[in-house]
Simulated assay, not measured.
Amino acid sequence: MTTVASTTSSTSTNTAAAASTAASNASTVDYNQFLQLLVAQLKNQDPTQPMDSTAYLSQLASFSQVEQQTNTNKKLDTLLSASALQSADAAIGKTVTSADGTVSGTVASVSLVSGGAPIATLKDGSKVTLDSSVSISG
């Protein structure tokens, strides 16, 4: 009787090891990487020794949580952008004074900066960052 070593189990082991190494090398795994790892694991599992159903359900629950968190982050970004636009709109035509009082004037325009506070350009050309330390008056 001849025995043949299963190549599927070694492929599965290699894939799992590569996935584990990739996950440990990266500080975080994003949504797409998580999905690719899950699909690779499912494709390369040994049919004679399928994955434990509780582990599979746990991974699906993790996948669902990652998806929900991604959607929540997108909604939060949208809300923050809307808030920045409202702040910028409210500042145009108002008088602003920097926290130290060195810069003061009427706001002519406002620029939105990704991930930061809006920057107001005054009528005299000077610029002030519209953060909580700036006073805005009517």
Results as ranks from 00 to 15, higher is better:
Thr3Glu: 10
Thr3Ala: 08
Val4Arg: 09
Ala5Gly: 11
Ala5Ile: 10
Ser6Asn: 11
Ser6Ile: 04
Ser9Tyr: 03
Ser12His: 08
Thr13Tyr: 11
Ala16Val: 13
Ala16Leu: 13
Ala17Glu: 15
Ala17Phe: 13
Ala19Gln: 08
Ala22Lys: 12
Ala23Ile: 05
Ala23Pro: 03
Ala23Gln: 03
Ser24Ala: 15
Asn25Gly: 15
Ser27Asp: 15
Ser27His: 13
Ser27Tyr: 14
Tyr31Ala: 05
Phe34Glu: 01
Leu35Pro: 00
Leu38Lys: 00
Leu42Pro: 02
Gln45Phe: 00
Gln49Ser: 10
Pro50Cys: 01
Met51Gln: 01
Met51Thr: 00
Met51Glu: 00
Asp52Leu: 00
Tyr56Ser: 02
Gln59Pro: 02
Ala61Ser: 09
Ser62Ile: 06
Ser64Cys: 03
Gln65Asp: 11
Val66Ile: 14
Gln68Phe: 03
Gln69Ala: 06
Thr70Leu: 07
Lys74Pro: 01
Lys74Phe: 02
Lys75Gln: 12
Leu79Trp: 05
Leu79Gly: 05
Leu79Ala: 14
Leu79Thr: 08
Leu80Thr: 13
Ser81Ile: 07
Ser81Met: 10
Ala82Val: 08
Ala84Glu: 05
Leu85Glu: 15
Ser87Gln: 14
Ala88Arg: 07
Asp89Pro: 11
Asp89Trp: 14
Asp89Gly: 15
Ala91Glu: 09
Ala91Gln: 10
Ala91Lys: 08
Ile92Glu: 12
Gly93Ser: 10
Gly93Val: 11
Thr95Ala: 07
Val96Arg: 04
Thr97Asp: 06
Ala99Val: 09
Ala99Tyr: 07
Val103Gly: 05
Val103Gln: 11
Val103Lys: 14
Ser104Met: 03
Ser104His: 00
Thr106Glu: 11
Val107Arg: 05
Ser109Arg: 12
Ser109Cys: 07
Val110Glu: 05
Ser111Asp: 14
Ser114Leu: 12
Ser114His: 09
Ala117Pro: 01
Ala117Thr: 01
Ile119Ser: 03
Thr121Ala: 09
Thr121Phe: 00
Leu122Asn: 01
Leu122Arg: 02
Lys123Ile: 12
Asp124Leu: 04
Gly125Thr: 04
Ser126His: 06
Val128Asp: 05
Leu130Ala: 09
Asp131Pro: 08
Ser133Gln: 10
Ser137Val: 08
Gly138Phe: 04
